[in-house]
Every structure is written in structure tokens, then in C-alpha cells.
Amino acid sequence: MKKMIGILLLATFTLPVLAESPEEKGLRIAQAADARDTGWKDQTANMIMTLRNRSGEESIRKIRTKSLEQKGDGDKSLSLFDEPADIKGTAMLTFSHGLKPDDQWLYLPALKRVKRISSRNKSGPFMGSEFAFEDLGSQEIEKYSYKYLKEEACGKGWKCHVLERTPAYKHSGYSKQVAWLDAREYRPVKIDYYDRKGSKLKTLTWKGYKTYGNFWRADEMFMQNHLTGKSTTLKWANYKLNTGLGDGDFNKNALARLR
């Protein structure tokens, strides 16, 4: 009888979990990951982007970034280009929105021109790199539909949730992505990107996680294109979170006076 109760109890407790579909579980984990990285308010960081072609030739970009967390909408962000020297002073302002197209302005310093640009080109390369605009954009929950695949070891003794996510926004260059998130802190570890035809196009890996306050940030992101053999490394430095930036630091005027 005792055993029977035990089994009953077990059944009662495991039932909701059993009833959870892979889609529900995937969404639940995406929500948990989103919640884990909420509350940083604002962030500044420096990025060095190294583009490498198949024969190993390198080309460097240096970018300073600022982001402002938004409640109930995608983040606001500013990117200021320092290198290559011919585009020094060029800057980009983005108000990202979940499924709605982002608002985006570009500042061209030689002409002093602030230009509203279409954010349609999500699948296009960012600065000639292997990162597409959509890879670097604000990752809102509603941008994808999710499916839980499995749990597996993912290096350094970490255990990872493996999720498949399918872009729900228009004009994505991907048919799906498979993402590895570590089960304890929900840090992204790896993403495989599949092109529109369904073949594995690129793999992004994160390295060198450190905590800044309560939040994890990686020192390095590495994108390998499997079709072209080209790759891009992003090295991050000088992460500063919760620095007191506000909406006034993210408008067309701020874009044009940034240095």
C-alpha cells in the first residue's frame, strides 16, 4: 500500500512534466534564460571583430557599443565604429522590436548625414563579417518558436539544454537554429544555424564567461561558416553594466554627436 501511494505520488508529481510537450518545454527554457538575463538596465562594451577569409587573411573592425534594456520591447542600441579608419565615426542606432521591424538610423560622419534605413536586411552580413544582422540583434522570446530536443554534456563538465528554434520574424536567412544553453545559468554555449535550404551553414560558439554583477558575459564569440570556410571572431572587453544610461543617450541627436 505504501508502495502504491509512493507510485501514485510519483505519478502526481511527474504528470505535469510528462504532459509538457517539447514545444512547451523549449519555450519554458527560453523564458527562463530570458528572465536570467533581465535587469542589467544598460551596458557598454568594446568589440574587436576579426574577419578571416579561407586563406587566412585578416581584417579588423573596432566597435564601441551601448545598449539600453527595455521592458516589454526589444532593446535600444548604439554601435560606434572606430576601425577601419575610413568608416571611423560611423554609427548605428537601433530600436529593436520583437516581431515588428526594428527602427534603425545610420550616421555618416563625412556628410554629417543621419539616414533612416530599412531593417529588412536581417540576413545580410554585418560589416562584411560572418555575423548577420539578425545574429547580433536583441534576442526577444517572441522572435522564435521553440522545441526542446535533449539534454547533453557540453564541455567543461557543463550540462546543456539543446533547443531548436525557428525564426518567427520575417526575412530571416535561417530555416532553423539549434542552440545549446547551459542548464545551470542559461548561458548560450553554441548555436548551429541552418540556411533556408536546411543545410548547416554556420556555427557560433561562446567562450570565456565572466560575471558582471549578476550577469554572465562572454569574452569571445566565434562564428564559423561551414560553406565558405570564412570565420569571424568577436572579442569583447570593458563590459560595464548598469552605468546609468537613459533614453536620452539613444536618439538621433546622440547618434550624430557620438565619438
Binding site: 530599412s118 529588412r120 536586411n121 540576413s123 545580410g124 552580413p125 526575412h171 536567412g173 540556411d195 533556408r196
Partner: peptide
Amino acid sequence: YTFVGINDSA
């Protein structure tokens, strides 16, 4: 009017 990513290129 912009045609983006012509023939799946950049």
C-alpha cells in the same frame, strides 16, 4: 526600392 540578398548572395 532595395532587393536584398540577390540570389541568396550578400
